[in-house]
């Protein structure tokens, strides 16, 4: 019984997070200006991290957490670098 509940909940949650990722990438492609695209990328990687954790719950393996942590760190550093570039690029121009 509890296995069915968890299986259903994990599937629904994965669908929702997948939809969120799709929306974030839509904003990334559309986003009128560069800062909209960057914040879209930020949302995309946070959602990807959440998706990995739900995979971890679904399969019962803890390995996924390390992957989620790595995604989080890489995403953080890349967003900071992009934001910094956005500021600097215009200062020098």
């Amino acid at each position: 019984m509890s296995a069915i509940i968890i299986f259903t909940a994990v599937s629904i949650a994965q669908l929702m997070i997948g939809a969120a990722m799709a929306i974030a990438s839509l904003r990334m492609f559309r986003g009128p200006r560069a800062q909209d695209r960057i914040i879209g990328l930020d949302t995309l990687y946070v959602s990807a991290m959440l998706l990995l954790v739900t995979f971890g719950i679904g399969t019962g393996r803890v390995v996924y957490f390390e992957a989620a942590l790595v995604i989080g760190m890489l995403g953080f550093v890349s967003t900071v670098a992009l934001a910094k570039f956005l500021m600097r690029g215009e200062v020098i121009e």
Partner: peptide
């Protein structure tokens, strides 16, 4: 998951 979706 639904809060993430609402945010998106």
């Amino acid at each position: 998951a639904s809060l993430t979706l609402i945010g998106a």
